[in-house]
Nucleic acid binder design. Structure first.
Lengths: 249, 249
DNA sequence: CTAATTTCATTTGTCAGACATTTAAAAGTC
DNA sequence: GACTTTTAAATGTCTGACAAATGAAATTAG
């Protein structure tokens, strides 16, 4: 393990990169203990503070966990699907909020990803999945449900949809994406009161999945996408009318 | 900004979380400067070293960047698609290598995601996209191309495919996923010498896209998926024969 | 001899203070 | 007015210290 001692980047960043490469490449395996901070400081010929900053960088990426005490230290962490998903939600949320991603772009991506799951979900759907979907539909049909709960149920419905594909890699990818897009979606469903249409389309999707008809399910998703985009368009128009946009500079 | 001063988690982790929430929630906007380390240390009533460890955690997640000098400090970072993709590649690569994800599962997810792009790519494909696809096909058909270059070209082909959908959100999601799966794919394509079949299928996809025929393109992708899985199966069988598996414990 | 207790060594978490380095603004000089 | 020097602010790094957690070894009581 060596580091380039004459770079413009910070020492702690370079040390972090060296250790990260060792982990990603597999040179350090899961649950293996890294040398103690004092040893690492000795190895890299830097102070312990610098080593600690490097280790904190790795910890922030869920690459290591640290334990205190006699047999403590930094250990290569077993990255679970949950950890990975949480990280992706953070990253994706920021990405969407910082890059002026239009609602249509996000919506299009979301439904394209969900459609990708349908053939698998139709083939593998199990009673448990269908029951979850039905439960969320029932919840969404509750008249006195507040907006926050309705949107949460919407997320749960779509997560159950992708989980139905029975592929953890897909679930991890899409659950993160869908969750990250939720703030954008909320802006629409909060203002639009017509939940009946959404619930009906959800029911159609469920019916098609129950019948293992992926094509029909895709059609219903298409309509849901079109309806969502239409809602967003109307919301936008209403807002523009209330507060006219500035002229282009 | 307050922190819970009686938790089992480390102080630097809690401070990082507080700042992270402020950024993700939008309380701190892009390019806004955070208070200096000394000020933060004062605010949170901790030492500067602790503040620095917290900031390094945020830096590792690309949430902030730091600049030295008189007007330097920590600034909320504009997260680009490239940064987000790089992070996702790291996370996904580790996830796949640590969770005993089977080749079939990864392969299935990958092709499902790519199929999701096809309708959009067929509708929006532009000469530039088609040219990139053709260029990679030509490269793959070069007889004396080494394995590494062939695989790299394979990745480039599939990235161009998803970029053809013209949706940056999809591109970011899928490019990361595909790149992360590359090590798994390499294990197959390195051992199997029959590149001609792959090149032919790539050509078929390109032809279908050129004709804006999403259905046909999906069919070719299906065959490519089946072929890839079949290759993997044969590689696995050959390996098992050479070195018989241990009996289950 | 066994079991409970104490001591001890190791390691991470935190702190305080210091110095080096970078950078832009302010002050000074011609 | 243009150029140079100084200065102040900020991050990057180092050193040394202490606190807290924790498992192992030594000790002691029964």
């Amino acid at each position: 393990m060596k580091i380039d001692r004459s770079q413009p980047t910070a020492l702690s960043a370079r040390i972090a990169k060296t250790l990260r490469d060792a982990i990603v490449s597999g040179a350090l395996v899961v649950d293996q203990r890294l040398p103690s901070e004092a040893e690492l400081a000795d190895t890299f010929a830097v102070s312990r503070a610098t080593i600690r900053e490097a280790l904190k960088r790795l910890a922030a990426q869920s690459l290591i966990r640290t334990e205190r005490g006699a047999l403590g230290g930094a250990f290569v962490r077993h990255l679970s699907y949950e950890d990975a998903r949480a990280q992706m939600v953070t990253t994706s949320t920021l990405l969407l909020s910082m890059n002026e991603v239009g609602f249509n772009t996000a919506c299009e991506a979301r439904f394209a990803l969900e459609r990708a799951c349908l053939p698998l979900a139709a083939a593998r759907r199990e009673p448990a999945h269908l029951a979850v979907l039905q439960r969320e539909i029932n919840r969404q049909a509750t008249p006195d449900l507040d907006d926050v709960a309705f949107c949460a149920s919407d997320v749960a419905f779509h997560r159950a949809l992708v989980d139905g594909a029975g592929n953890p890699v897909l679930s991890y990818q899409l659950a993160g994406a869908i969750e990250a897009m939720q703030p954008l979606m909320n802006m629409v469903t909060f203002t639009a009161r017509s939940r009946a249409e959404i619930v009906a389309l959800h029911s159609d999707v469920l019916t098609a999945l129950t019948a293992r008809d992926a094509t029909a399910a895709a059609g219903h998703l298409d309509r849901l996408e079109a309806y969502t985009k239409d809602l967003a368009e109307r919301v936008r128009t209403a807002r523009d009318k209330a507060k006219p946009p500035r002229v282009a500079s």
